[in-house]
Amino acid sequence: MTTNRTILIAALIIAVAGATGIIWHLGTSDTGDISQSPETSFSTIELKSINPGTHFVSDIRFEQSLQMVPERLMVYSKQQMSDEEILQIASDLGITGEPTEESGWISVKKGPCKFLSEPGGRAISFVNETPMPSYELEFIDSHLPSDEEARKIADEFLVRHNIRAEGRRFVGVNHGIGYFTYKDVKVKDNEELTVVYRHFIGDHEIFNEDLGVRVTFMGTVNSLFWKWTRYTPYKEYRAIRPEEAVACLQKTGIVVLGDISTPDYATVRNITIGYLGETRSKELDYLIPVYKIEGMVYSNGSAAEFLQYVPASLEAAAELI
């Protein structure tokens, strides 16, 4: 008979024994004892990619042992910022022009500085359009801060301008590089560093939120993008196990971040618990716990990454999404 079912049974037994480092093999879509209504039978956080799309992969394997998760996870209720709070942030950034509002968006401008907030302050953006004194390569390279210096500049900027991003955790510095091209000539003519912070509730990341502070090669801050939620505890919900979340992928399909059209199998490399405050198609009123599942799909010697979010509590998803 086929080996798939045999291997599955053996894998489950080993899992119960607590062994680690074994390749687990989900050859069926058996989700064990999860009781799912039709509404929750699919991962309700919809995710579609442009290229190449969502693919159904029945053969999903694990490369790591799965973490233990609490039986119950907190859901948080999102809090909107008031217009006064938003304008105070603009003022703290030194932008004190006459505000305008349209559809809840608040805009304030002063000289080359522009401040824009989405309704309720769910995303705040600042940009300073003052041009740099020079974009010559030698000037850029001689003035460009190191990543460490950029982080320090960003940290100080946030403190100086009273940007209270509680729960922020530095995660890295992105380099954006610009080039001038003319016929066969290609020379660097810009480099900017974006210091990126992610938003954490305790040890759990809010996956759809971050703060980016852009540091120019002159060591000045010319841009800030802050997508951040304030929240209060709402209610605890029962959590599903990581392997149950992975089993959901067999029903919902996997979003592949690469050009593989018919995956043969997938391997889960990392599962993390965190939070999301939106789906790909709508904002939520809550931060709900989710599993972020990352891995690879394989087909005929090719491989591509995949990334998927699955609610960590089906009850919360059914009630709140």
Binding site: W105, S107, S125, L276
Partner: peptide, 28 residues
């Protein structure tokens, strides 16, 4: 569109902002 017309952001900044809001994943 909102960053273009409400915030008076440059086209490039507006495109980046829209992507920053809609993209959750780092470094991809």
């Amino acid at each position: 569109a909102y960053y273009l017309k409400q915030g008076d952001y440059s086209i490039w900044e507006s495109w980046q902002r829209a992507a920053n809001y809609c993209i959750w994943e780092q470094n991809k």
